[in-house]
């Protein structure tokens, strides 16, 4: 109840500031062909901000004999409506399935634009959205205001429980993984070998870790590497045509990150100082590296401190 009223207030604030020209802004949906019958809509290589309307995640559009399939649907109902229209124009067939790869709001809050029965996610993603979705939605309203207007939290109506879905002969392999979040869906289009990595794979854009379990993430990256595919469509950043580099780079970053923050705790650094450590040159192609490093310090440092700093308390004096 508290949340609803707070959201109503936030929405009200958004309405007040709508006159400041935000209403005139529209999302630009520009699908780029990446393989036969598959397009990518690139997200901005930026933090979520009013300037980009939260459209920072990559989206995939797949044309199948049974209709159009979307992998992720963006941050807001407005984005998702534009995406749906653009995708249907492109393929000439209606959207029949929307996969939400994981719970993060830049990928899935646009669900509201679709009938829940056509929206599919891993059970863990739906459970996490039921738990955290309102909080994410509030935060998005706070940052994006009018871009978010009308976006209600809707839960996916279908659970992904099979390893394959067949759309009139175009088969999609569904990989139930985790590590970037508690449940991460990756998808391989068997016809073209395009691997849609969700946020398990970043490319030339620093990975984000707000809900990460780094050990599981590593295991999932190993699995993706072993999974037969040709190229990788990452959750953020440009297509990786070779299909290896983005996976290796994501792995390299999270390995470095964990070791660097461990070393920082062992060297007595506080969080502010840990956010200032040098980032190796090999990551110089990565957008928003410093920003994501500082976010990761916030996400990961307290647990590392709890593990690495020894207990020093003495018995209480009564």
């Amino acid at each position: 109840m508290m949340r609803l009223s707070r959201r109503a207030v936030l929405a009200g604030m958004a309405t007040l500031s709508a006159s400041q020209a935000r209403a005139a802004d529209a999302y630009r949906i520009e699908p780029i062909a990446v393989a036969d019958g598959i397009w990518m809509v690139r997200g901005a290589n930026e933090p979520i901000a009013p300037g980009n309307g939260g459209a920072i995640a990559n989206i995939a559009i797949i044309a199948t004999p049974a209709g159009t399939v979307l992998c992720d649907c963006g941050p807001s109902i407005r984005y998702a409506r534009s995406l749906r229209a653009a995708a249907e124009r492109l393929t000439g067939t209606p959207v029949v399935r929307v996969y939400v790869t994981h719970l993060h709001p830049d990928h899935g809050l646009g669900i509201a634009a679709f009938e829940p029965a056509m929206v599919a996610a891993l059970p863990g993603t739906t459970a996490a959205l039921a738990r955290e979705g309102a909080g994410y939605s509030d935060a998005m309203y706070r940052i994006l205001e009018d871009w978010m207007r009308g976006t209600e939290l809707v839960l996916p109506g279908r659970q992904v429980t099979t390893e394959m879905e067949d759309f009139g002969g175009r088969r999609l392999r569904l990989l139930a993984l985790s590590g970037h979040s508690g449940a991460d869906l990756a998808i391989v289009d068997e016809a073209t070998g395009v691997l849609i990595g969700g946020d398990l794979v970043f490319h030339d854009r620093a990975p984000s870790t707000p809900t990460a379990d780094l050990d599981r993430w590593r295991a999932s990256l190993d699995r993706l590497k072993a999974e037969p595919h040709r190229c990788v469509l990452p959750g953020h950043g440009p297509l990786d045509p070779g299909g290896v580099e983005a996976i290796v780079q994501t792995r390299d970053w999270i390995d470095w990150l964990e070791q660097a923050l461990t070393d920082a705790v062992k060297a007595g650094l506080d969080m502010v100082e840990a956010g200032r450590i040098a980032i190796p040159d090999r990551f110089s192609t990565m957008a928003v590296a410093r920003y994501e490093l500082q976010r990761s310090v916030s996400h990961l440092y307290p647990a590392l401190e709890a593990r690495l700093l020894p207990r020093i308390d003495r018995p209480r004096q009564e």
Binding site: I48, D106, E132, Y136, D138, A139, I143, T211
Partner: peptide
């Protein structure tokens, strides 16, 4: 304080 943190839900 509202600038980022979008993916950190305000835990109640």
């Amino acid at each position: 304080a509202a600038g980022g943190g979008c993916s950190t839900p305000p835990v109640s």
